[in-house]
Amino acid sequence: MLYLSLIVLIPLAAVVWRGTRRGPDAFWHAVTTPDTWASLKLTVLASLLVALINVVMGTVIAWVLVRDSFPGKSIVDTLIDLPFALPTIVAGLVLLALYGATSPLHLNLAYTRASVVVALLFVTLPFVVRTVQPVLLELDRDMEQAAYSLGASPGVTFRRIILPNLLPAMLSGAGLAFTRSIAEYGSTVLLTGNLPFKTEVAAVNIFGRIESDDVTSAAAASTALLVVAFVVLVLLDLVQRWGVRHD
């Protein structure tokens, strides 16, 4: 408990303390400094978009991993976790190689907003896949067959039977992806060029403030991020409870 406090609780409390010390007006002022506000806006919007894309693609990938079979599937399955294990700066470098100025595909995304989305998509790849996969695995196939025997086509069955049962897992994965995205630093630092007002994410902005010794503003922006993350986590918990009510 002491360990936890020393390392986690007190420092975090210090951040919030520092950020809000001079009162709500000062806090708001620090948070709405043009470049900080822009970075926060960009971060939240990009993270929402990324969460959305992940809900779709993550479910598709989980579906293919569970229901389909092809040579090399287990390799693909292992690879999904790579973004978890890869250091974020390496992720950034890796994406820069393919989507930067020297791209062999002649696809230069550097310094664009799209690059932020690509970086975030990379690091959040596993989240929805790994929350949906176990649910799909445990899904009672009999339910689908019952639906067929009652006259439902595979499409209708997916929409009315499978999807509702996957929804809690999809949302929970999306929530995790979102909280990870808003916090992301390393992967965006190289590819995006960190142009203020354009491609600078919140974490980079905060880092800049720390470097220029403006610790209070950094703390304020950090507090804002923490609040958003906290809200999402609480919502996630509620979603989990709602999802279990039918089991």
């Binding site: 420092p11 909280t179 808003i182 916090a183 974490a203 905060i206 950090s222 993350a229 906290f230």
Partner: peptide
């Protein structure tokens, strides 16, 4: 306690650094 243990996952690494510097 259980919930607190999971907190680090949601915190941006830059914020972690800031927090430690402040203390």
């Amino acid at each position: 306690l259980g919930a607190l243990i999971d907190v680090p996952v949601a915190v941006s690494p830059v914020v972690v650094g800031l927090a430690l510097i402040l203390v």
